[in-house]
Write a protein that binds this DNA or RNA. Sequence first.
RNA 1: GGAGAGGUGGCCGAGUGGUCGAAGGCGCACGCCUGGAAAGCGUGUAUACCGGAAACGGUAUCGCGGGUUCGAAUCCCGCUCUCUCCGCCA
Length: 430
Amino acid sequence: MHDIRLIRENPTGFDAMLARRGLSGVSSEILALDETRRARITAAEAMLAERNAASKEIGLVRKTGNQEEFEALRARVAEMKDETARLEAEAKAADEALTDLLMGLPNLPLESVPDGADETGNVELRRWGTPREMDFAAKEHFEIPAVAAGLDLGRAAKLSGSRFMMLSGSLVRLHRALAQFMLDTHINENGLTEVWTPVLVRGDALVGTGQLPKFAEDLYRTEGGHWLIPTAEVTLTNLVAGEIVEAASLPRRYTAWTQCFRSEAGSAGKDVTGILRQHQFEKVEMVSITAPEDSDAEHERMTRCAEDILERLGLPYRTVVLCTGDLGFGARRTHDVEVWLPGQGTYREISSCSTCGDFQARRMNARFRREGEKRPEFLHTLNGSGLAVGRALIAVVENGQQADGSVQLPEVLAPYMGGARRILPDGALA
RNA sequence: GGAGAGGUGGCCGAGUGGUCGAAGGCGCACGCCUGGAAAGCGUGUAUACCGGAAACGGUAUCGCGGGUUCGAAUCCCGCUCUCUCCGCCA
């Protein structure tokens, strides 16, 4: 949500920023609504003040017992009541229209974000690692014998339809090991606080982080009215919703390992083989809550936390900064970390780290107070995957695949795999 | 799921139709007092929005949303959350 005062002060600047995201000037409509809203509020309040004064007078008059004057005042107030109601309704209508409009507008990109129409405009920031030379044709994850032994897409489809998976044996253990390894690293090395959160939330929470009202079709909703979270960004960020926190408690750094649910509306035909894109998947999420002046550094730190996981796993990656055309709704700047997938011969997104500035904080009214200051200020919020567990699984097995159909596992996972370092072609650990 | 009780300012807590943004207390800030501190005394102490250069004025807010009334913290309806008991349950 945008600060209406900033738009009032600098409408052309606001339009110019939104233009970078491909939106034509909306400030004129915003300002018109804002003006109507304020005019009606002023008028309604003036009339209300008069009415309140008259009502007070009625009380006094009634005590003095002058019946005529009492009735006259009553009639006058009754008249004003209709007029007040009309003005208030108009003010409310303008206010709602304005809020709807503002709620549907994406965040403004930071200066440092490159311009571009789509993902081809993203700019590579750095690369780490070298894809392994393989003297055989690299397979995609679902084709590798060691993986196929524990991956059952057919039966998952029988139960749930497409874009669901069933994992068993060594493969699910590897999946769990990855999540545990990520969590332990974030908790022990990166100083994040682990949180267990609900995965069913109220609509308000999703409005706060920006998924609603605009992207309802991407989400699942229960009959009881709960929504399933598409990412723990929702629950972790909303931890500070409606609160005023002490500056001394910042930055707050959270991590959570949760199920995530996405309808994947609009991604028909994309990534239909394997487990790259699922309706239900696991993610270890990172969320930071900071003071405004610290969010840039925090963004870099968070991105490094995601990259660090890949480095410990020995998985080659590259990090890109998304261009304006590829930027998500709530983000000011996003770093995507893309891991090397030999089976596809390309880098694929495994983490997305975004700084949202005060965009989400405004929507959820999350503030902090500086030591000695009276006025609270809006917080800055950041979120990033650290990492998507299913995709990490894909990356580990594809990069570790051997000519004989087995998979060599990263050394750091051995403690989580009962000391095993390989998955054999038949799915057994070794 | 059933029954009951309750949600008032940073906290506790009074308040059943008007003069209530709301007694009192705690906390906090400032001042007096003191060699210094404590105690004591005094003063002050919410947020948002609208108008205004400002001083300041106005409006709203007693869980949330409606309603009754000239007037609602107070009466009515719906919702929500918390607590207690019962039921069910991993």
